[in-house]
Design a binder for these strands. Structure first.
Lengths: 192, 192
DNA sequence: GTCTATAACTCGATAGAC
DNA sequence: GTCTATCGAGTTATAGAC
């Protein structure tokens, strides 16, 4: 675990770069410097850049969804699970310098390979389903507490909110902007 | 008005390109093809690419804020002004293929010139102030209707929501995802 | 698996004619 | 203002030695 193999090191470096600078913002040369391998050697592991992007997006989706499923097991109430979700997206910022991988990739969507796009779509759908399930358990659909709307609509809004809040934080490299944008929904969850 | 001068044509083309592909996703070569001028000639109008990016961001901010101030004059109630704001961000999508310019630029923020970053910050602050003013007029701070929270927090959340909703639409090039993500807040505004 | 070397291309930017 | 011509550096990607 302490010494990752080269392929893993490359994926770690690539994910870091994309989330900080976007898919067009880094090159094999950057990875070469970060990992300590000649840039031509990277092509042995990932023949084309699109292969690398697809691989890191697939891994990212798997890891994030595993984390969220862990919340479902370890955290007792859907209310607290949703609070943990918002905190998780907060922690992904790392001082306001990073974004969720799928946000970082979405801006340059036109230039992505079809397989990469598909990974992004699947991930977003899975995220929204996860949120929707928790919201259904809150039975907010029947206007319990101070919620309005059906779980599907609230799920879509919640996902948009945390991604938008990440952008806000990124705009001035200040995580406090994430907190400001998510204050309302967190207060509402805590009151419930 | 029908025949824009070259400088304006270049800015129009650049804005279109950035909002569709990001700052790193287009080149002077693309502009050359779109406007019908040799790429070396572009440097006469905008010596460096950063000059062009700063110019289109400044123009974008001015135009959008003028539109919103127009809403304040022409639309009677703050409630309807806010609904118009959400519709405006919807119209900016253009079939799910475009983003708000400041969202498109924020991902690659690290590589932007300081002047461009400053234009983005100023614009975001002005947007949030505009939203906050409308929300104060709704007197939602005192928990009127089914709102919760103070105008400042709701303003930050609303901005994050519409920007996140644009990303959702972009993820599958489908504007319906914008509608899904903004359904809750629109319903709440309409009920009020 | 990693290396050197390089092909083939695109990028932003400049010089100077007209 | 727009052009041709070009520079130097960057990019992804490949070939072949070790």
């Amino acid at each position: 675990m302490t010494k990752a193999d080269t392929k893993t090191k490359l994926m770690n470096a690539a994910e870091h770069q994309v989330r900080q600078k976007g898919a067009d913002g880094f090159s094999y040369s950057d990875l070469s410097a970060e990992v300590g391998i000649r840039k031509a050697s990277i092509h042995y592991h990932f023949p084309a850049k699109s292969d690398l992007l697809t691989a890191i997006m697939a891994r990212y989706a798997k890891e994030v969804l595993a984390t969220l499923d862990g919340y479902a097991d370890q955290i007792p109430t859907p209310r607290e699970q949703l609070i943990a979700f918002i905190a998780f997206y907060r922690s992904a910022l790392e001082e306001g310098r990073k974004l969720c991988l799928c946000v970082a990739l979405t801006v340059g969507r036109d230039a992505l390979a079809p397989e990469t796009r598909q990974e992004i779509s699947r991930f977003r759908d899975a995220l929204q389903t996860w949120l929707q399930t928790r919201l259904e358990q809150l039975s907010c659909g029947t206007r319990t507490g101070n919620w309005v709307g059906d779980p599907q609509a609230i799920g879509a809004a919640t996902l948009a909110l945390v991604e938008g809040a990440q952008l806000a934080a990124r705009s001035t490299a200040d995580p406090a902007r994430y907190d400001a944008a998510t204050k309302c929904i967190l207060d509402r969850l805590r009151q419930q």
